[in-house]
Amino acid sequence: MHFYQDPQFGERMITLMAALVLVLQIAMVAQRWLVTNIRVFAAQSFLLAGIATTIAYFNNAPHIYFVAVLTIVVKVIFLPVLMERLVVKIELRQEIKPLINVPLSVLISGALTILGYVVAESFYHPEAGTTPATLGHNTLAVAIALFLIGFFMMLNRRKALTQVIALLSLENGLFLAAISLTYGMPLVVELGVFFDLLVASMVLGILVYRIRETFDSVDVSKLRRLRG
């Protein structure tokens, strides 16, 4: 048996990539530059596509290949390009000023990861034998951590555009949970989610542009002025 047929190798690769996805999420928390943030997001999505491909390969689930390709097209190429152009357009290359300083938010992300593991642990009952594999349990922990950190990032950032990135990375967490636990939801659901995301990003993109036109800033904390 070649090593690429060894399921243990597949499992190792998946957990490794899941861990790297988590690392990239924390890197996003630590990163100040918008463009880098977008690229880190693209890399993260690429790794997710890799996880999907590996799952598809080792479990003979061809429809997941399709999901992987879709991920690459939408999240690795289309959305990042769109956002980078937006960045150029609204001339927002400067550093992001988070509400909580970087070292502390990185430490908070670490704590959220622990929380993710604790939650995932409570779902894990190996003796019951109903969960697909240990694989699901490990990546579920990472998925919950991604979700929590994404949420925290949305809270922590001021600029509307970074909140979009945070939202997208949060969705990556949901995606990871879906493919690792159920080996892919029905294709229709996946497609719907992708479509929703696309529309949401476009709307948010236009909104960001408008906010900038109106307020000369994309700082959402200034939106309070809208109150009557």
Partner: peptide, 22 residues
């Protein structure tokens, strides 16, 4: 530099959590 080292610390903590669960 503390930011970089905080990242290293969290990476180390994640590594530790991973031994514990993976």
């Amino acid at each position: 530099v503390p930011e970089l080292l905080a990242v290293a610390f969290v990476l180390g903590a994640l590594a530790l959590i991973s031994t514990f669960l993976f």
